[in-house]
């Protein structure tokens, strides 16, 4: 990949990453040439260790594209992503990812599904050795005793818990969550948000979640990135300074309501800006 002079200049201007910086993105752009679509335009962001970041934006704002580039699944057109100081050029073991669908293999038990990333990278023997860790993870997400159960016996929320374990088993430095609970019903989704917060806190994880539910974005996040569409760029950052651990009761407080209103306002501004098409 040829680096644009622009990003080289930037790299010259900015100091090297500080210790607690997990992800640093500079001047990231993505153009889908076939469709002539400018999906992402000059995105900069920093994710610090142990923080939770939500990204919200209208559909087609490139938020999923951003996540896939961060995961090394598709290349950027220009710009740079550093994960723990090393540029992301493809999929890596220290990147954990989770999708809207649990994407569990139906012929494997929960335990075998959780161990899949180890098995693919290091072989079955290595996976076998890590079973104890996998069982501990299942315990952590509240699925102790479900290790020999197959996906068709699990509810949607339980299946996503297994997917969380599979994401965590390699001990990734960053968790990339692509609308992880978007396919769940509202009540299960709220439960899963509380659970995700607990798991992230216990693992001291750095997380980056794409969503289009404003309350969910605010509930989980330390900062909410609001994106605008065409070209996709980060319009505003809303800091969420609600105390942790957050509870579902907090969602009815005026402070929470004010944050939701603010994010919604910024979103509307973004849509108004890019909505000429």
């Amino acid at each position: 990949m040829i680096e644009s002079t622009d990003s080289v200049d930037r790299a010259g201007q900015q100091p090297r990453p500080v210790n607690d910086e997990v992800v640093r993105i500079t001047g990231l752009s993505k153009t889908f040439h076939k469709r002539g679509l400018n999906a992402l335009d000059d995105v900069d962001m920093t994710l610090r260790h142990g923080t939770f970041t939500s990204v919200i934006g209208p559909s087609g704002c490139g938020k999923s594209t951003l996540l896939k580039i961060m995961a090394g699944l598709i290349p950027a057109s220009s710009g740079e992503i550093l994960l723990n100081g090393v540029e992301v050029t493809g999929p890596r073991q220290d990147i954990g990812i989770m999708f809207q669908q649990p994407t569990l293999l139906p012929w494997r038990t929960s335990l075998e599904n959780v161990l899949l990333p180890i098995e693919i990278r290091s072989g079955s023997a290595a996976a076998q050795e890590r079973s104890a860790d996998a069982l501990q993870l299942l315990e952590l997400v509240g699925l102790g005793g479900f290790d020999q159960v197959r996906p068709f016996e699990l509810s949607g929320g339980m299946a996503q818990r297994v997917a969380i374990c599979r994401m965590l088993v390699t001990g990734p430095a960053i968790l990339l969550l692509d609308e992880p609970f978007g396919a769940l019903d509202e009540l299960t989704r709220e439960y899963m948000n509380v659970e995700l917060q607990r798991i992230c806190r216990e693992r001291d994880a750095t997380s980056f979640m794409v969503t289009h539910a404003i309350p969910e974005a605010v509930f989980l996040a330390d900062q909410v990135f609001v994106m605008s569409a065409r070209p996709g760029r980060i319009a505003t950052i809303v800091d969420v300074d609600l105390p942790r651990p957050r509870t579902l009761d907090m969602m009815t407080t005026p402070e929470f309501g004010a944050l939701v209103r603010r994010v919604r306002h910024e979103l509307n501004m973004g849509i108004g800006e890019g909505g000429e098409e």
Binding site: L73, P91, I95, I97, T103, L105, E119, R121
Partner: peptide, 20 residues
């Protein structure tokens, strides 16, 4: 999505064929 998951696990073509 599952194909994407295998890609993110750096699965080889043979592994993706056999395991997925």
């Amino acid at each position: 999505d599952t194909l994407m998951l295998f890609k993110s696990m750096e699965s080889s073509r043979w592994q993706t064929l056999r395991k997925l």
